[in-house]
Simulated assay, not measured.
Amino acid sequence: MVPPGGYLWWYLDALSDDGQYGLTIIAFVGSVFSPYYAWARRGGATTNPDNFCALNVALYSRHARRWTMTERGAAHNHRDRTEFRIGPSQLRWNGDSLVIDIDEVGVPLPRRVRGRIQVHPMQLFSFSTPLDASGRHRWGPLAPQARVEVDLSLPEQRWRGQAYLDSNEGDEPIERAFTEWDWSRSLMADGSTAVLYDLEPTRPDARLLALRFGTDGEVTPFEAPPQKTLPRTAWRLARRLRSDGPVTVHEQLEDTPFYQRAALRHSLLGETVTCFHETLHVPRLVSPIVQAMLPWRMPRRT
């Protein structure tokens, strides 16, 4: 159960075997990006996280980019041990794989996203670790190595590739514990996944996670390379990545005032890898100006 004011999300990213397609999907309970959830907390209203759920779908390709994040109230959602329904879309665990049926409308252009995505874990993990000193915020990968099957009718695309699935949860609003973080995941040559989680990277109380998730189910810490400063985004968002050598931006996937996502090329553990990388800047997220802008990208259905 997610406590009032808290949050839970499941995050999936995937890249096609031919490198032509990519996606990210985030299923939110108590959406940390929701201006409606933030306004409810500030106004003293009931802040049941199940009343602020959303399915964020982002598709990346040369031919079709889509972005959806319609938030829905409790009357439109249902969640139990194996199923999470958010309006007309749902996520379902069938015992072997995660099945995601999507029926959403994009913003700001109202283009529909419809179809099925199946995620087949190669190894399931029950690993979880605190992200803050008090342990009120936690993270852990569920399937750091997985295969994905994408079958969409709108926009029409069918492909297979490699995927990554994890989860974050918190017992309080995210702004009470963090100001910023940089996160990345890299698929290594032996099939393992290396994750770097730089929390508060510019402060004395910085916390760093450098973990390798093996195909045998083992979790192994490794010595993180030096921190490299990346070029600021178009929104002038500062970002960093730990790398043994130069870092190049292979593709900028998302660029907002408070959050960026990119595919980067860099050196890690003696290999040249492509990683999914994200930066979150919480003070920008909770600023009144940004909160007033967010409904344009995150409409709500009550």
Rank of each mutant, 00 (worst) to 15 (best):
F52G: 02
R65S: 13
T47E: 05
R85T: 12
N51P: 00
V57P: 00
S34E: 06
A64W: 07
A58R: 09
I86C: 11
T70K: 14
A38G: 02
W39D: 15
R62S: 15
P88M: 04
A58M: 09
S61K: 07
Y37I: 02
A38S: 10
M69R: 12
V57H: 00
H63D: 13
T82V: 11
S89T: 04
A54Q: 02
Y60T: 05
A45V: 09
R85S: 11
M69C: 12
W67M: 13
T47C: 12
S61Y: 06
A74G: 01
A74F: 03
P88R: 14
P35R: 04
R85I: 13
N48F: 00
G87R: 06
R62H: 13
T68G: 01
R41W: 01
R85V: 14
T82L: 13
A64M: 05
Y37R: 14
A58T: 12
N77T: 15
D50C: 07
T70C: 12
P88E: 10
E71S: 08
R66F: 04
R42M: 11
G87P: 02
Q90F: 11
L55P: 01
S61F: 06
S61M: 04
N51M: 03
T46L: 10
R41C: 10
D50F: 09
L59W: 01
H63T: 14
A58L: 08
F52Q: 03
W67D: 03
I86V: 15
Y60K: 02
R66L: 10
G44F: 09
A38K: 07
R72I: 13
E71F: 03
R72M: 15
A74E: 12
E71K: 04
A45T: 05
H76A: 14
S61G: 13
P88Q: 10
N77D: 01
A75W: 08
G43K: 13
A75M: 10
R79E: 05
R81I: 07
N48L: 08
W39M: 14
Y60V: 09
Q90M: 09
E83F: 08
S34K: 05
M69I: 10
H63E: 14
P35E: 07
H76C: 10
N51T: 02
A54G: 06
P35S: 09
R81Q: 14
S89N: 02
H76F: 15
R81A: 15
I86N: 02
G44S: 08
R79T: 06
T47P: 00
T68Q: 03
N56M: 08
S34W: 01
H76Y: 15
T47G: 00
Y37Q: 06
A64I: 00
G87L: 05
T68N: 03
T68K: 01
T68M: 04
H78G: 13
C53T: 12
M69W: 02
G43N: 15
G44R: 09
R81E: 15
M69E: 11
T46W: 01
T68W: 02
L55T: 03
Y60N: 04
A74L: 07
N48C: 05
A58V: 08
N48A: 06
S34I: 08
S89I: 04
F52M: 07
G73H: 06
T46H: 03
H76G: 03
H63K: 12
T46R: 13
